[in-house]
Structure formats: structure tokens, C-alpha cells
């Protein structure tokens, strides 16, 4: 099978968020970037398991500038065969999806993997967009994927439960927790990743339709109000009268 895994870069959750002076962007100073966990832990690892079992290749794709090469190398160290980087700073989800679809159009991939969402914007948009551009089925929030020839049986997380679907390749899938177990790159992987190719390709032209105007920081939370552990009636009263939560 020929598999494509879309990987993105995201600030680590523990990063302190600060804005640039004009509030138009995130202040990248001191921000620790990582590969989006859903892409790394679940999408990529499940793709690797499939090719390890039945043969084939795993290609990574990232839309971003050269500073993304570190996370691409990590993906190669975990086991992907090669990578494509579309050389443009990602703007809207639609433009990212357009770039991925442009590459995938001619790639003859059997399955295109994405993470269910990036942990910075939690948009969960790109997968459906890629699927639509390529006119392919899209199975979102997959927590289990079994393949039998060209037929996939997939469990997907829905509110309060699980749905099981069957679909033939080619298709697009977004990975949720459970799809695979996280892998840590080993020394050999890290060494061989250095010789694996990253093809840098030029973006296609695309006009952004949704643009970020500004950022703001949320209002400071007022200090916590401590309630006497022996007086839970008081807590209930506060929740009812003050917070209007019940």
C-alpha cells in the first residue's frame, strides 16, 4: 500500500502563550514546537504498522517552511520512508488542504492519514477539506483500523459511543487516540532518517478566505474562592446564587 501521512507542527501544550506587540500573531520567542501528537502517535504509527505487515511505503507531507524540517526528520526517524514539504507558511486550513490535495492528486495513495485535530487550533478542518478536494470518502476520529485487502473496517468515535464503518481504498482517515501506540524513535531510526529524502515543492497559488485579524489573551481568572470543607451547603448556595451553574 502507498500511504500518505499529513504532519503538522504545533506549540507544546505546556508553552506559555504570549502575543506580539501589535497582537497580530503569537510571539514565537521561546515557544517549544512539537509534532502534533495525533499525527505522530496515532496516524503515523498506524500507517507504519500497515506497511510493516503488508508492504508498501509511508510518505510524510507537511505544509510549512524549512523550520519544520526538525519534525519531519522525527517522522522519518520513527519510520516513514520519505517526505514532501510544501514550502509555504501555513495560513488558513483551506490553503493547507489545497496544498496537500495538489500533491496527493498525482500520488496514487491508497490511504491518506491525518490527525483528528491540531492541538493548537483544534480546528479539525483539514482532513475533510483534503477528502473533498480529492472526492474521496472521509472517516474521521478513527480509533481502530483493520485492513483486509482493499477493504478497511474502521471504528470512529462519536458523541457517547462508537460507530463501525466499512470502506474501500482509497480514502482519507483522521486519527484519534487508540488507533496505535506511541513509538519513540530509536538510535538506528535517527541515524537512517538523516539520509532519507525530503522533497521541497513549491506551493500552488491560493487566496485565503478566512484570515486571522488579531489575537487576545483571555481575561485573568479572578482568584479562587475557598469554601470551608465542612460547609458544603455554602458551596451549593454559591453555585446556585453566584455562579448560576445549577
Amino acid at each position: 500500500m502507498k500511504l500518505l501521512v499529513c504532519i503538522s507542527k504545533t506549540p507544546d501544550t505546556t508553552t506559555k502563550i504570549a502575543l506580539t506587540g501589535d497582537k497580530s500573531a503569537l510571539d514565537a520567542n521561546g515557544v517549544q514546537y512539537i509534532m502534533n501528537p495525533y499525527d505522530e502517535w496515532y496516524a503515523l504509527v498506524r500507517a507504519l504498522e500497515i506497511t510493516e505487515k503488508s508492504g508498501g511505503t509511508v510518505t510524510l507531507i507537511n505544509v510549512g517552511k524549512a523550520d519544520n524540517d526538525a519534525i519531519i526528520r522525527k517522522g522519518l526517524a520513527i519510520g516513514a520512508n520519505d517526505a514532501v514539504r510544501v514550502d509555504i507558511e501555513p495560513q488558513s486550513s483551506l490553503s493547507v488542504a489545497k496544498q496537500i490535495a495538489e500533491h496527493a492528486k498525482t500520488g496514487n495513495y491508497d490511504i491518506i492519514f491525518l490527525g483528528k485535530e491540531t492541538i493548537d487550533y483544534n480546528g479539525s478542518e483539514v482532513g475533510a477539506m483534503v477528502a473533498e478536494y480529492l472526492d474521496l470518502p472521509f472517516i474521521s476520529y478513527a480509533s481502530k483500523l483493520e485492513l483486509d485487502g482493499n477493504t478497511a473496517t474502521i471504528s470512529r468515535d462519536i458523541e457517547g459511543g462508537v460507530e463501525v464503518v466499512e470502506v474501500a481504498t482509497p480514502f482519507v482517515i483522521s486519527a484519534a487516540k487508540g488507533l496505535a501506540e506511541q513509538r519513540i524513535p530509536n538510535m538506528r531510526g535517527i541515524m537512517t532518517s538523516k539520509t532519507k529524502p525530503i522533497a521541497v515543492v513549491s506551493p500552488v497559488a491560493f487566496d485565503d478566505l478566512a484570515v486571522t485579524v488579531s489575537y487576545e489573551l483571555p481575561k485573568e481568572k479572578s482568584a479562587v474562592k475557598m469554601v470551608d470543607p465542612n460547609d458544603m451547603d455554602e458551596l451549593v448556595r454559591l453555585l446556585h446564587e453566584e455562579a448560576k451553574a445549577i
Partner: peptide, 22 residues
């Protein structure tokens, strides 16, 4: 929701529409 989120991107691509999730 899982349904809405799976539709938003598709429709944005299909209708060439600006979209914001969440």
C-alpha cells in the same frame, strides 16, 4: 460535534467558502 466537524471542511472546500471551526 463529530458530525458538524466532519462536514465543515468538506463544505468549505466544496463551496470555496471561508470557514471557522469552534
Amino acid at each position: 460535534s463529530s458530525t458538524g466537524k466532519s462536514l465543515l471542511g468538506r463544505l468549505a472546500a466544496r463551496l470555496n467558502a471561508a470557514s471557522v471551526a469552534g
